[in-house]
C-alpha cells in the first residue's frame, strides 16, 4: 500500500475514533451504541497500520483485490449496524407504546353524568 494511502487511512480512522470518544464524553452518544463505531474505527486503523493483514484476509477469502475485501467488510458492517438499529427502533416503539398506554391509564376520565 502506498504511504499516502496509509496516512489517509490512519488520519481518517483516528479522526473517527476521536469524534466517537468526544461524542460519548459530551453525552451525545451512549456507550451501548459507541462500541460498534469504536470497533470499526479500530479495524480501519489496524488495517492501515498493518497492510499484511488485509492481504492475508484477501487471500484467505479468495478475493482478488484487497480493496474488494475492504468493500465487503464495509458493506457487512453497514448491514449489521442497520439491523441493529431496526431492532433498537422496534424496542423503542414498544416502550413508547407502553408509556402511551400508561399515560392513558393515569389520565383516565370517569364518565360524565349523561344530561337529563
Amino acid at each position: 500500500m502506498p504511504p499516502k494511502q496509509i496516512i489517509l487511512a490512519v488520519v481518517l480512522s483516528l479522526g473517527l475514533l476521536i469524534f466517537i470518544i468526544e461524542a460519548v464524553r459530551r453525552r451525545k452518544l451512549r456507550e451501548e451504541y459507541a462500541w460498534l463505531w469504536l470497533l470499526i474505527g479500530a479495524a480501519i486503523l489496524l488495517l492501515a497500520l498493518w497492510p499484511g493483514l488485509l492481504e492475508f484476509l484477501t487471500g484467505l477469502m479468495g478475493i482478488e483485490l484487497p480493496i474488494n475485501t475492504v468493500f465487503f467488510f464495509g458493506m457487512m458492517f453497514v448491514i449489521f449496524i442497520n439491523l441493529h438499529f431496526s431492532i433498537r427502533v422496534s424496542q423503542l416503539t414498544n416502550q413508547v407504546k407502553r408509556l402511551t398506554q400508561e399515560i392513558a391509564f393515569l389520565k383516565r376520565l370517569p364518565p360524565r353524568d349523561p344530561p337529563g
Partner: peptide
C-alpha cells in the same frame, strides 16, 4: 363517549 356515560382512556396520539 364520556358524555354518554363511558369511562374513557385516551391515547395522546
Amino acid at each position: 363517549a364520556r358524555k354518554h356515560g363511558a369511562i374513557v382512556l385516551s391515547h395522546p396520539f
